[in-house]
Design a protein around this nucleic acid. Structure first.
Lengths: 192, 192
DNA sequence: ACTTTCTTGTGAAGCTTTTCACAAGCGGCT
DNA sequence: AGCCGCTTGTGAAAAGCTTCACAAGAAAGT
């Protein structure tokens, strides 16, 4: 949001304005920010540039995160091509797939590697994140292998609840569940 | 989870077992279910078949949801091919894109249509959901058009907060934000 | 029929998050 | 300098969510 305000030439922004854009309340914006420090000026609001920079640091976007993509299917390719990805500091350093037909193919500069190499690739390239874009049946095994190799976080697209040690953050994206959330709300509303 | 238990031959399941699988607590499982009714038997647990069927009805999965896919890019194609999609009752009834090169191509049985036809397609096909897999700059316009056509819910992949009337549910999937959640947690943990 | 072993459903307690409301502070205008 | 219009940061109150703990009920064995 702050970058879009920058593009529109905004220099300062109030919690009220941010709240309207983000579908929340001004008090919520201020309370949330206050957990990390004090970024605004009374009577004036927040400096867009400064707040953006401070939030980038809080989110860890002031560094490059080497990412290994596991699964060279359609979801994998969608992510690989997604431009915002690299712009935010996430750099795909390796691609892995189990399908022998895909191994050896090139995506951009990268050659698709066999799953057997996952662990050594993570170690050699010091990858911090893996993206799991594999079928549900393979996900748990890939997760364990990544954890053994010392991965720091997992983005999981497989529709299973991964079992990983405490302290390794996992974010799940379950596309069917998002649709189910919609059909649930619509069904509810129509029963009023 | 219940379907996976069915496949493993499970007949009944306790809140404790469900909690372990889902990384939550038995009390949470029971409290959540209690909001929709009383599905279990004391001393025995829940009938897997019955609970699955009841939840399917609650989530609105006992009917077919006609979906229009807007944006025939990589994310769109990943969704279109995703098999779980149709299995859960979401049926893609039309594909729309703004790129003249793509219009007229066939994906399976469906011909890609121009964006201008979106409104009439939604009306004619009685589509209840749209999936927005378009660039951020186009998303708001497509959303408004869909709302005008009487859409019931929106699944939005564009990294913008859509402004739609109250009562139209919107679910957002923001891939970069998921990665940011991971790098934030890793950054935090390393500062302890 | 009685006891034992489970497990649900649910008030009450405890905890977390959100909202309220206002003192304190900044900038511009007279 | 003094006043006025805004807006932050934050304790305190309100609302919401999770956990606890237990009565009530179900099945199976004696």
């Amino acid at each position: 949001m702050l970058e879009s305000i920058q593009d529109d030439g905004g220099v300062t922004v109030s919690s009220e304005q941010l709240a309207r854009r983000g579908h929340t309340t001004a008090a919520q914006v201020r309370k949330d920010l206050s957990h990390f420090g004090s970024f605004g000026k009374r009577g004036l609001g927040y400096s867009v540039d400064e707040l953006r920079d401070r939030l980038r640091i809080i989110l860890g976007l002031d560094q490059v995160w080497p990412v290994v993509l596991v699964g060279a299917g359609r979801i994998g390719s969608a992510l690989f091509e997604y431009p915002d990805f690299k712009r935010r500091g996430y750099e795909c350093v390796a691609i892995v797939d189990s399908n022998p037909e895909k191994i050896g193919r090139k995506w951009g500069e990268l050659v698709i590697q066999p799953t057997a190499k996952l662990e050594s690739l993570i170690k050699e390239l010091c990858a911090t994140l893996v993206i799991l874009a594999v079928p549900a049946s393979a996900a748990q095994l890939v997760a364990e292998c990544s954890v053994n190799a010392g991965i720091n976080g997992i983005l999981n697209f497989a529709p299973v609840q991964l079992q990983v040690p405490d302290g390794i953050p996992v974010e799940n994206v379950n596309l069917v569940m998002e649709l189910e959330a919609l059909s649930f709300q619509i069904t509810r509303a129509s029963k009023t």
